[in-house]
Computed example of a mutant assay.
Amino acid sequence: MKVGFFITCLVDLMRPGIGLAAVRLIEAAGFEVEVPMAQTCCGQPAYNSGDRETAQALARKLLDEFERHDYVVMPSGSCGGMVRTHYADLFADDPELSYRYAQLQPKVYELAQFLTEVACVASVPGRFEGAVTYHDSCAGLRELGVKQQPRALLKLTGATLKEMEHCEQCCGFGGTFSVKYGNISSAIVDEKCEHIVASGTQAVVLGDLGCMLNIEGRLRRRGNESTRVIHIAEILAGEC
């Protein structure tokens, strides 16, 4: 079975190691991974900003590049939510594209979803000694139903999970939201940082690099150099 791996813009540009870790996990689960090298953006920033024409062009491009694969996996609930939830709107006026998208949609998975629901992994390469807390990213939770999957996978590493207060609350990133409403975004992420620290753990794990960069950046600006911020792919692959 062939998996088309969608790297995502942020992972490609900011933390490519997350993408490499995700690919290794998928391959370890027995799947062949292909990474279309011409891939770019899922179109979410344009869609959220009202630039429908650009979003449609990017959606068509992704459809062309990934529809031949048995599965499409993304290390991001944000991008996964965009493709699986909002592409139907972008293709609504084109019957041919709507039909093609209907074939692609059920094959799209966020990484933790894929590893638990499709690959059904019973073990992972990574081991982690100590306590972690988990941040539920908005799009993954609300658009894809990613909640218990990463928690089940974390247990396989040996980590102790301690839930923070309001683990489902937004971190304040929201892509363009953090740029347009900086003061509000900062207030939201400050509250998230307080909940993370109050959990008494040494690390926060999450499945979306946008949230990861926002939380880690704010923790460091607040003077917290000790709390680690780890993507789910990294801890599962033992690369953290």
Score class of each variant (00 low, 15 high):
residue 57 A to T: 14
residue 15 R to A: 11
residue 44 Q to R: 04
residue 16 P to T: 04
residue 13 L to A: 06
residue 26 I to C: 03
residue 37 M to E: 11
residue 26 I to D: 07
residue 49 S to K: 05
residue 47 Y to E: 04
residue 36 P to W: 12
residue 49 S to M: 12
residue 12 D to P: 01
residue 56 Q to R: 15
residue 18 I to T: 14
residue 15 R to H: 13
residue 50 G to S: 10
residue 41 C to W: 03
residue 65 E to I: 01
residue 56 Q to P: 00
residue 58 L to D: 08
residue 54 T to V: 11
residue 56 Q to E: 10
residue 9 C to E: 01
residue 20 L to H: 03
residue 7 I to L: 05
residue 57 A to M: 13
residue 34 E to Y: 09
residue 50 G to F: 09
residue 59 A to R: 13
residue 36 P to G: 06
residue 33 V to E: 08
residue 61 K to G: 12
residue 30 G to F: 12
residue 6 F to I: 11
residue 1 M to Y: 07
residue 6 F to R: 12
residue 40 T to L: 05
residue 1 M to P: 10
residue 30 G to W: 03
residue 18 I to E: 04
residue 65 E to F: 00
residue 21 A to Y: 02
residue 61 K to N: 12
residue 8 T to W: 14
residue 29 A to E: 00
residue 33 V to T: 15
residue 48 N to T: 14
residue 30 G to M: 08
residue 14 M to S: 09
residue 35 V to I: 15
residue 37 M to L: 15
residue 47 Y to I: 03
residue 65 E to P: 00
residue 18 I to F: 03
residue 52 R to A: 09
residue 65 E to C: 00
residue 8 T to F: 07
residue 39 Q to G: 06
residue 9 C to D: 00
residue 14 M to F: 13
residue 21 A to K: 02
residue 50 G to E: 06
residue 45 P to M: 02
residue 1 M to Q: 13
residue 52 R to S: 14
residue 62 L to N: 15
residue 64 D to I: 08
residue 49 S to F: 06
residue 64 D to V: 13
residue 37 M to F: 09
residue 24 R to M: 05
residue 21 A to S: 15
residue 54 T to C: 07
residue 21 A to R: 03
residue 20 L to G: 01
residue 1 M to H: 12
